[in-house]
Amino acid sequence: MIAFESAAYNYGGGELLSDVTLKLAPGSFHFLTGPSGSGKTTFLKLAYAELLPTAGHVTIFDREVKSLPRDDVANLRRRIGVVHQDVQFLDHLPLAANVQLPLTVAGRRSETGDLGELLKWVGLSHLADALPPSLSGGERQRAALARAIIMGPDVILADEPTGNVDWEMSLRLLTLLVELNRMGKTILIATHDLNLIRQAKNQIPTRVLRISKRRIQLAGVDL
């Protein structure tokens, strides 16, 4: 689905990621961990083509990202649900409109029932008409997850999805992501929360990747 081949990324001040070779297989569940500033967010941005590798290759659904026209980048993103670290919404639109934004920009309409089901699934049906600035951190994270999956994407990338929420909410979000994986979605979560990773490993087979010294390694059993 998403493949890195000797990919590197250089911010200009030095190489942040180097010689990354990795494939996210369909239906897999990956964690990406590493200290702050190690390049987790950069890796995710490369995985949904917000950044281009400065060396090597990244292919998304068998398309080399460097040669993708802008419209094709937009089309690919409709197949990738992203939960960003800094969850951003259109603050002037109510939550329901924000959640169905990917459908809106793709010119598709959602059935009212489907949207209601989705909001209920993430526990936000009572906030459908609320504006984003009035939501709490956990509510924003769940809304972002709902927005990420409303198009039925093949891959879900989440950047520190539990960064601003308490442990109870973290487990709730993890449960949602595990459920999605069981539905066949490919999941990659960037996090430094090792407890979350341990909790996930108890529920589902996962691979844990660690960024160390600009490279990606398979983490050991010490987690």
Binding site: N75, L90, L101
Partner: peptide, 16 residues
């Protein structure tokens, strides 16, 4: 700018 960024990230084409 934030609106544009969000729209691009959820798959909006430039024309849209």
């Amino acid at each position: 700018a934030q609106v544009v960024r969000v729209l691009r990230l959820v798959g909006a084409r430039d024309q849209y």
